[in-house]
Write a protein that binds this DNA or RNA. Sequence first.
DNA 1: CGGTTATTTAGATAATAAATTAATTAGAGA
DNA 2: TCTCTAATTAATTTATTATCTAAATAACCG
Lengths: 106, 106
Amino acid sequence: MDAIFEALASTPRRKILAYLSEAELAAGQIAAKFEMTKPAVSKHLQILEHAGLVRKRREGQFLYYSLVSENLVNTLNGYLQEVCPVSRPLKCDQAKPRRGGGRADA
Amino acid sequence: MDAIFEALASTPRRKILAYLSEAELAAGQIAAKFEMTKPAVSKHLQILEHAGLVRKRREGQFLYYSLVSENLVNTLNGYLQEVCPVSRPLKCDQAKPRRGGGRADA
DNA sequence: CGGTTATTTAGATAATAAATTAATTAGAGA
DNA sequence: TCTCTAATTAATTTATTATCTAAATAACCG
């Protein structure tokens, strides 16, 4: 939980999550969307991975990152309920993130 | 939004929010629940206030802090929907936070 | 094997955040 | 007004985080 809130406390990291909510991306593709260097992005990815918010998968030379939405949804939702309880929990349409929208950053 | 996620990225601050979800408290009462000094707590409260997550009200010499749950709920919920959209939005039972539970910290 | 691409790890530095002590503002009450 | 309590602001120190350059690891291809 600590790790998750810490991970979310960064605009570039939230932006990465937004990108990954649209599609799985290789580290280099993610880095290309930012001004900073690859090592910097790599570190952000590491923090997101440590928080369990993304997962990586190697395919040849590439490392593909993808969103682990359950964790995000469960944690934030659980936290919300704690501070402001409500009857109906938010559930996520896990298996198929929508791919249509042109909006990518928060 | 930035301010809100930054505010939430701290265990003591989340703990303060948890306390305030149970009852309105004076700054001193909040500080008494932590190991750190009053100025330190005061700064945390300032950050929470700047994020719009708490509100303060003076009553004589005392400054009473209370939770602004709408902001928390709307922001986190809005963010969740962005990364993992779902049909039914989470609404908060604003006016009357439950007071029963003995649990106070996250 | 040697070269090229993809990505991360190491090491160093700069920018931010958190905590402390000391001093200040605000109000209550004799 | 003087003093006491409540709380914040100021100034400083310390710790953490973010970022960079350079080097290392991993995998492909000739």
